[in-house]
């Protein structure tokens, strides 16, 4: 599935989404995403950004245009993709350690390997001390870490994140953003990240896509050129603030 550098990993051409022959959710979406990019999707409610993510995941069918993932259809490319939902979406009857293993077990990874990788992932996201806990014993931020560990356990090539930190307080969110980038520097997946937070999008992304609503179209693509690693310091730089202002401005002009 690895591609030469000049070929995009994910290609969306004139992508179209309609629900049941009625409402058009997404229209004329054109996007070429190279390996290793971090795409921030932002736009008003109803712009179809979550739907776009679900289409890439193969969870909802494409109704027009082309969606190509390294020469495969979304449902064929699934085994190298992970989805992180807005809620942690854990199995409440399993411990943290077993929750991390869920996806691997469904992929029929052998038991020893599951245990080894789950341990590694728990350490990677800072859960090594709560492996035996049940989800309800953890805070929202910790639950999200479990969700991230589970998603990363299958070494995905593409990570789809649907407002994963939307329900968390700002401090936890900032902290998890930094963690996410730290992990990315080790794991190097390509990411599609849906968010409502402009500063989050600017902090994480290599490129921000601003979408319009009803129907969802691409309004603006904004490259974000800050070098990685980005840290808490990055947020304080005037350049960062300027870009947040610019994206907010675009967002305001589509949200009418």
């Amino acid at each position: 599935m690895d591609r030469p550098n000049n070929t995009p990993l994910v290609t969306l051409r004139n992508l179209h989404k309609q629900y049941g022959g009625g409402e058009t959710v997404l229209k004329d979406i054109n996007l070429a995403v190279n390996q290793g990019e971090f795409i921030g999707l932002i736009g008003p409610s109803g712009c179809g950004k979550s739907t776009l993510l679900k289409m890439i995941a193969g969870l909802t069918p494409v109704t027009g245009g082309i969606l190509d993932i390294a020469g495969k259809t979304p449902s064929d490319a699934r085994d190298r993709m992970s989805f992180i939902f807005q809620e942690a979406t854990l199995l409440p009857w399993l411990t943290v350690h077993k929750n991390i293993q869920t996806t691997m077990r469904l992929h029929r990874v052998d038991k020893q390997e599951c245990l080894r990788v789950a341990d590694k992932m728990a350490t990677l996201v800072g859960l090594e001390n709560v492996k035996g806990f049940y989800p309800r014993q953890l805070s929202g931020g910790m639950q999200m870490r479990v969700s991230i560990a589970r998603a990363l356990s299958i070494s995905p090539q593409i990570l789809l994140l649907d407002e994963p930190f939307g329900a968390l307080d700002e401090m936890t969110r900032d902290h998890l953003n930094e963690e996410l980038l730290r992990i990315r520097s080790i794991e190097a997946w390509t990411a599609f990240f849906v968010t409502h937070s402009v500063s989050e999008a600017v902090f994480l992304s290599t490129e921000i896509i601003v979408l319009t609503a009803n129907p969802g179209t691409i309004y603006k693509k904004i490259a974000v050129d800050f070098p990685y690693p980005r840290t808490a310091k990055t947020r304080e730089s005037p350049e960062f603030q300027r870009l947040v202002g610019e994206v907010s401005h675009h967002l305001r002009s589509v949200d009418r």
Binding site: K54, A57, G58, L59, R78, D79, M81, S82, F83, F85, Q86, E87, T89, L91, W93, T102, T103, R105, L106, H107
Partner: peptide, 26 residues
């Protein structure tokens, strides 16, 4: 059953029996 959990299982190409015994039943 939680819709997102079903999607999670679908993403992992879970079989019918896996979905039933590991998700729906519990």
């Amino acid at each position: 059953t939680d819709k997102n959990l079903l999607d999670l299982f679908k993403m992992s190409n879970a079989s019918f029996t896996q979905e039933f015994f590991l998700l729906r039943a519990p």
